[in-house]
């Protein structure tokens, strides 16, 4: 099973994502800030990163840009997991380098399918 890094500042949402990933057997790494997320990504090189976009300090888009610049981490697929769901948000976020985009509130089946497909494609 895969190792998945979640970058998410809201504890309840973090718990939900952890539960959904662990329930299908993935192991989960957690970061509540983009900065710590980058550190973990470089140190652990997970198979997949789930990235919240609006974060305290550095935001998710910046973090993705840094991940994509780094040879160690540029190949890790990133799925945006965000409450930014206004018109244009998805395009903007995908353009920043996200392989997939999941809007909050999530439906767990869509979440599972997206994660599974992305891991399968990688």
């Amino acid at each position: 099973m895969a190792r998945v890094l979640i970058v998410e500042d809201n504890p309840a949402n973090m718990k939900l994502a952890m539960f959904l990933l662990e329930s299908v057997g993935h192991s989960v790494l957690c970061a509540t800030t983009a900065e710590f997320g980058l550190t973990l990504a470089r140190a652990e090189v997970p198979n997949l990163i789930l990235m919240d976009i609006q974060l305290p300090g550095m935001d998710g888009l910046e973090a993705i840009a840094l991940l994509k610049q780094d040879n160690e981490t540029c190949a890790i697929p990133v799925i945006a997991l965000t409450a930014l769901a206004m018109k244009g948000d998805e395009e903007r976020i995908r353009a920043a380098g996200c392989a997939d985009y999941i809007a909050k509130p999530i439906r767990y089946q869509e979440f599972q399918t997206t994660v599974a497909n992305r891991l399968a494609a990688a």
């Binding site: 309840a12 949402n13 718990k15 539960f19 930014l84 439906r107 767990y108």
Partner: peptide
């Protein structure tokens, strides 16, 4: 304001809907 409202409401709603749906469907 609307963009913020959307974001701020969706964030807690994510946990509300996410957990209640997995509970309802017996995943837990």
């Amino acid at each position: 304001f609307l963009a913020n409202m959307s974001h701020e409401l969706r964030t807690p709603l994510n946990a509300i809907m996410g957990f209640s749906e997995v509970l309802r469907d017996g995943l837990v």
